[in-house]
Design a protein around this nucleic acid. Sequence first.
DNA 1: TATGAATGAGGGTTCATTCAT
DNA 2: GATGAATGAACCCTCATTCAT
Lengths: 208, 208, 208, 208
Amino acid sequence: MTEKANTCSSKEIAAFQGLFALARDGRHYSSIKVQDIASAAGVGKGTLYEYFSSKEEIISRAVFYALEQLLGRLEQSMQEMTTLRCILEHFFDGLNDERVLPFAALSELIASVPLEQRKFLEEHSPSDKERTYRRLQQAEQQLLSAGRRTGEIDPALTDRFCEYVILSALFGQTASCRISRAKASDPAQRRMAVEMICRALRPRDNRG
Amino acid sequence: MTEKANTCSSKEIAAFQGLFALARDGRHYSSIKVQDIASAAGVGKGTLYEYFSSKEEIISRAVFYALEQLLGRLEQSMQEMTTLRCILEHFFDGLNDERVLPFAALSELIASVPLEQRKFLEEHSPSDKERTYRRLQQAEQQLLSAGRRTGEIDPALTDRFCEYVILSALFGQTASCRISRAKASDPAQRRMAVEMICRALRPRDNRG
Amino acid sequence: MTEKANTCSSKEIAAFQGLFALARDGRHYSSIKVQDIASAAGVGKGTLYEYFSSKEEIISRAVFYALEQLLGRLEQSMQEMTTLRCILEHFFDGLNDERVLPFAALSELIASVPLEQRKFLEEHSPSDKERTYRRLQQAEQQLLSAGRRTGEIDPALTDRFCEYVILSALFGQTASCRISRAKASDPAQRRMAVEMICRALRPRDNRG
Amino acid sequence: MTEKANTCSSKEIAAFQGLFALARDGRHYSSIKVQDIASAAGVGKGTLYEYFSSKEEIISRAVFYALEQLLGRLEQSMQEMTTLRCILEHFFDGLNDERVLPFAALSELIASVPLEQRKFLEEHSPSDKERTYRRLQQAEQQLLSAGRRTGEIDPALTDRFCEYVILSALFGQTASCRISRAKASDPAQRRMAVEMICRALRPRDNRG
DNA sequence: TATGAATGAGGGTTCATTCAT
DNA sequence: GATGAATGAACCCTCATTCAT
C-alpha cells in the first residue's frame, strides 16, 4: 500500500528488537547505553549511527515501530473477532509473542522516555506521527463501535472515558507489575486487564 | 513513638519538595541533575550530600516520603468517609493540594525510577520499606473492606484483581495524561479515575 | 580603565599558558586534546568547562589573549622608542620572554585554527573582537607614522603594502622555522624579521 | 628518465586535486575527512586505500606533489626569464591556474599539517623527500644567482636571509589573506609578494 | 554547618580504516 | 580493481561526588 514509508531496514529492526529485549529485561531508558543497544542488536556501536542520527532517534523510532506493530495486531483482532471481550482477549494473547508485539517493552519505553524527549519524538517526523495517531484513533473508534454494537459498552459513557479506561488498563499493567512484582508476560495479568476494561465499560445491568 | 525514624529534617523535606516541584513541571528523573534539586530546594549542592549519600538516595527517600504522605491522606479519608466512592473522591480531591500530596509527582517519579534503582531503594532501608509496605497493605485491606461492606465491590472479586484495578487507576492516570495530553491536575481526570474503579469493582447488578 | 572586561581569572590564564606551552612545543591545534590543555594548565579536565564552554572557546579566547599581550608589548615599545627599527627590535626582543609574550605560540595558533573556526572566533564576543581589532589598527597606524616621520618608510608606499610586509614578517617567521627547522626563539630569526621589514619599507635611497 | 618514481596514477592525481580543491575552498586540514577527499576526487572511500596507506599519506604525498609542480613552474620561469623580478612575476602569475599550481592550497596545507605529521612525511619516502629538497635548493641557488648577477640582490646579504625573505613572502601571503581577508587569488596580493621580495633584497642604492 | 570549585569516570558521537562483495 | 557498510578507538563534554574553606 502507501504505507511503504514505514518499512525499516533489517539493521533498524535489529536495533529496535535489541532495545525491546533490553526494555523487557527491565532495563530503564536512562540506564540503557548506546553500546547496550548495539550489543543487543548484534552490531557495532558505530553501525547504529549509520541508521540513526542519535540515541534519541533510536528510542523515538522504536516507540513508533512498536506502536505500529501493536496497531497491526489490534486491527487484525478486530477483523477476526466481533465482541469487545474477544477482540481484547485475542489482542492481549498476541502480546505473548515477544518478537512480534513487545507490548511490555513499549509501555516501559513510553513510560521511560522523558517528556522533554517526547517533544523531539513529535517533531522528528511529524508526518509519521500524524499517520500513526490517525491510525490509533481509527482503531479506537472501531473498537468502541464494536463494543457498543454488542452492548458491551454502556451507551452513556463518553469516548473520553472509554479511552481513559483502555489506556489505564494498558499502562496500569506495567505499573501493577512494578508494584506487585508480577511478570508482564503472566497470562493472569492480561486476563485482569481484559476483565477490568469489560467491567468498567459494561452497562449497569450487564449480565455478561 | 517508634515512627521516629520517619521524621525528616527541614533540609530533607526541602529537597523532597524541590524534587516534587521539578517532577510536577514534567521534568524526568533522568534529566534531573543534583544541581537542579539543590536549586529547587534552595540549598547548596554540597549541602544535599550532608543529608543524603547520593542522588539515588534522594530519589528513593523522596518516593517513600511521598508514599507516606499519600497513605496519611488515604487513612484520613477512610476515617472520615464510609463508602468506597466517597473515600476515593475525598482522597483524590486532596491530591489537588500539590504541596501536601504531590501524587502526579509520585507517579511520575515511580515510573521514572529505573528498575535497577529500585533494588537500591529496597535494600537501602529495608525496615522503612517494610513498614511502608505493611501500612500500604493495611490501607488496601481497609479500603476493600469498606467497599465490600457497602456492597460497592463485587464479592466475587479477588483482592488481587481489586488491587490491580486501583493501581491501574492511579498509574494509568499518568499514562493517560501523557497520551491525551491532559493535565494530571485536571479534576475531570480524577473523576474518571474514581468512576473507573467503582465501575470495575461494582457487582453485576450494581445500581449505584 | 574601562578595559576591565578583558581581565581573566587565574584559571583562564593558566589554560591559556598551558595552551601556549603546547603550541610552543610544536603541537598542532588538531592534535591538542582538551586533556592536554588541562594537564598543561595543571587542572582537571572538567575544570576547564567551568570557565569555557568548549574547546573551541578555549582556543579563541587564547588567541585574543595573546594578541592583547602582544599589542601591549608593541604599545610599550612605541612609547619608549622612536625609530621604526628600534621599536621593532625592542618589540621582537620582548618576544623572548615566553611567559609574557608567546608570539610563536600565537602565530602557530592562528595558523592552525581552521577557517571555519575563525567564524566562531569572530562571532564569539563581537565586542571584544572589535575592540582588539581597533587597537590593532591604531597600533599599526602609530607604527607607520613613526616610520614615515623618521624617513624609514618610503612615502610612496601604501598602508596596505606596509601591513602586508609586517604580517609577512610576523607569520613568515613561523613558516620559515618550519621549513628550515630553526627555533622561533632563535635571536637570529628575530633579527632577520626586523631586517626584512626595514629593508622592504625603506626609501630607494635609504642609507640606514 | 630516472624520475619515474615520481609519476602518479590518475587516481592518485584525482585525490590530490580533490584535496587541493578542498584546501582552496578554505577547508582546513583538521576538518577534512577521508570521505571528503574521496567525494572531491570522485572515487569511493575504499578506493583511496588502494593507493594510499592512510589519510596521512594522502596529505603528505599531496604536499610533495604540489611542491614538485611549483618547482617545475619555477624552473620554467627561470629558463624563460633573466631578472629576479621577471622570474618572480612569471612564477607568481602562473599560480593563477589553480589546476596546475595550487599554491594557496599548498601553503594552506603545509601550514595546516601538524608538526608531528611532518615527521611521518619525512620518514615516509626519504628518497623522494631528499630528491625534492635537493631540487628545491638548486632552484633557490639558481634564483639567487640570477638576482645577484643582475644586481637585484644586495651582495652583502646571506643566502639564509634571502631564503628567509622568500619564504616569508610565500607563506606570509597566506597569513596576510587570513588577517585582511583578501583572496589569495587576488593579483594584487601576488604583486605585493614580488614587490616585497625585490625591495627587501635590493642593494641600498638600488634604483629599480 | 553550608558551600561551590574542582574533579574524572563514563557517555554519546565521529571518523579513519577494513573487508566482503 | 572498486566500493561502502561495518567497526571501535578515541574524543569532547557532562555531572555526580568530594573537600577545602
